[in-house]
Design a protein around this nucleic acid. Structure first.
Length: 118
DNA sequence: AAGTTGACTTAAA
DNA sequence: ATTTAAGCCAACT
């Protein structure tokens, strides 16, 4: 895990809201079943902060607790894995996730769509 | 305080 | 398939 400037608070969210957001995100990531993936945007939606996909990525990158969660099952909308984390692909393939020739996850097969969306 | 940056997304060409 | 563009929003210069 990179150790860039990690602040345990947010500038534009009050500390309590930031804490709630972070907890919601981590809680959702923890529920992604093995062999499936989901996207930053989906997590943001489920967490109750639509349009905060970027913030989800930021949280996963900078929050130490994320390392203990299956955060390798989070990819972007087109199935690309996180930049600078080559091991993510190996972890996913070990769970049976198939990649397309272009190096993207086969989303049509592995995208996790929780009931909560409907 | 204004501009830039990104584990982002959607759309268009 | 790739590139471009726009929108997004908190964090960082």
């Amino acid at each position: 895990m990179p150790t860039p400037p990690y602040k345990d608070y947010a500038d534009s969210m009050d500390a309590e809201e930031a804490q709630t957001f972070r907890r919601a995100v981590l809680n959702i990531v923890a529920q992604i079943p093995a062999g499936s993936v989901t996207t930053y945007g989906t997590i943001a939606l489920l967490a109750g902060w639509p349009s905060h996909a970027r913030m989800v990525g930021r949280t996963l990158r900078y929050t130490p607790e994320a390392a203990a969660l299956p955060c390798h099952r989070v990819v972007n909308a087109v199935g690309r894995t996180a930049p600078g984390w080559s091991r993510q692909r190996e972890l996913l393939e070990a769970e049976g996730v198939k990649f397309k020739p272009n190096g993207h996850v086969d989303m049509t097969r592995h995208l996790w769509e929780p009931e909560q969306l409907f």
